[in-house]
Simulated scan of single mutants.
Amino acid sequence: MSSVAQIPKSPALHEELTYDVSVSERHVVGEDIVSLTLRRDDGGLFPAWEPGSHIDVFLGEDEQGEPLTRQYSLWGAVEDRSAWRIGVLKDPASRGGSLRVHEQLIDGAKIRVRGARNHFHLEPAKSYVFVAGGIGITPILPMVRQAERDGIPWKLYYLARNRARLALLEELSGLPAEKLVLHCDDENGMIDLAGITSVLGEEDHVYACGPGPLLDVLDKMAQKSGRWTFHCERFAAAPVAPGRVDLPFEVLLSKSGTTHQIPAGVPCLKVLREAGVEVDWSCSEGVCGTCETEVLEGEPDHRDAVLTAEERAANETMMICVSRARSARIVLNL
């Protein structure tokens, strides 16, 4: 079956803890890519986490005075709870987060973090094919290590435009060489994804993280094949399909009994925050899952990059930062 498989829900945000941490190590691990090792200022251990998890990193405020929070995947060893390790690409299209990391988070810098949260679980499978593009290696690396520990067959294809963009090569060198393919477009052209996936069967799972076009191609291949299962984590929600119209809708908050009108083109999150409603949020782009809210009535118009196809069909929750409503009225558990 070609789909993103159903995954367990992460804990609610209020159950996650916030930590004061310091940057104990900073290394350049690729062109415009830094790795940061974070340790708690109180000397304590971080909570246990699973491959695919990410954390929130608080980076102060943006130019409009809004909290600047970004999400970064954990790439370190899951058994090492003394440190959290993240990798950050300096993105020229960044809204300020990655630039601030690269310019300000030097050795000894103090910041706050929250988590960990996981919307990208490694599900049981007969075998795995991992595809990482550029900085997308960060959530994939712990998955590869887990598969190797569990003795499950796997293959990793790590793709980049050139060798300078291949990150964490020292960490990757510890993996079995016959299971690892490093592919650079400038040396070998475009990789043959169709050939790689053509031999996969119903018990094979493909996990991918990287640029949107790469994930889009794999997603279409999975749907066309109808055999293997595809899982991915995106850096940004997919663009709204052409012709998809924003309609105004009404939101009823079940706990307060208040009603709010959401105009066309205005995010639900923005309206609720301006009305003083306390709601958890972070990325405002539909990728982190922080603002996931229970839907009691109505039909959401899902536009996030977090929920699976099955979860969208169930209509039990929605990401209020980007998603809207197909029905004229929606009731949220707020």
Rank of each mutant, 00 (worst) to 15 (best):
R85Q: 09
P263V: 04
V129G: 00
V57G: 07
V144C: 09
S53P: 09
V21M: 06
A236N: 14
D192E: 07
Q71T: 08
V29F: 14
V206I: 09
D186S: 08
L269D: 02
G65R: 12
C184G: 11
S35H: 09
E178K: 05
V199Y: 12
C291W: 02
A222S: 12
C209M: 05
H119A: 06
R81D: 11
R145D: 02
G96N: 03
I7C: 10
A93K: 15
E25G: 04
N188H: 07
L172Q: 14
G174T: 15
L13F: 15
P176Y: 11
G108R: 03
G210P: 02
G195R: 11
E25Y: 15
A237Y: 02
V331W: 15
A328T: 09
V4Q: 05
W228Q: 01
Y157T: 03
I196Q: 00
A164C: 05
E25Q: 15
G136C: 03
L99N: 08
G189S: 05
L159P: 04
Y72C: 04
Q223L: 09
F46G: 11
P51K: 08
I196E: 00
V266L: 01
I135R: 00
G52I: 11
F235V: 02
A177T: 12
D150W: 14
D246L: 01
E294S: 13
G44Q: 12
A12F: 15
V199N: 14
G151E: 15
A5I: 08
D246G: 04
V23F: 08
E79Y: 11
G115L: 13
F235P: 00
A238G: 03
P242G: 10
R40Q: 12
H231V: 12
V271C: 10
I152F: 13
R273E: 13
A238I: 07
I135N: 00
R329W: 06
N333G: 11
A147G: 07
D185G: 02
E278Q: 14
I152S: 10
E63V: 13
V277W: 02
I320P: 01
E294K: 15
L172H: 04
P67C: 02
I140T: 02
G60T: 11
G298T: 06
I106G: 12
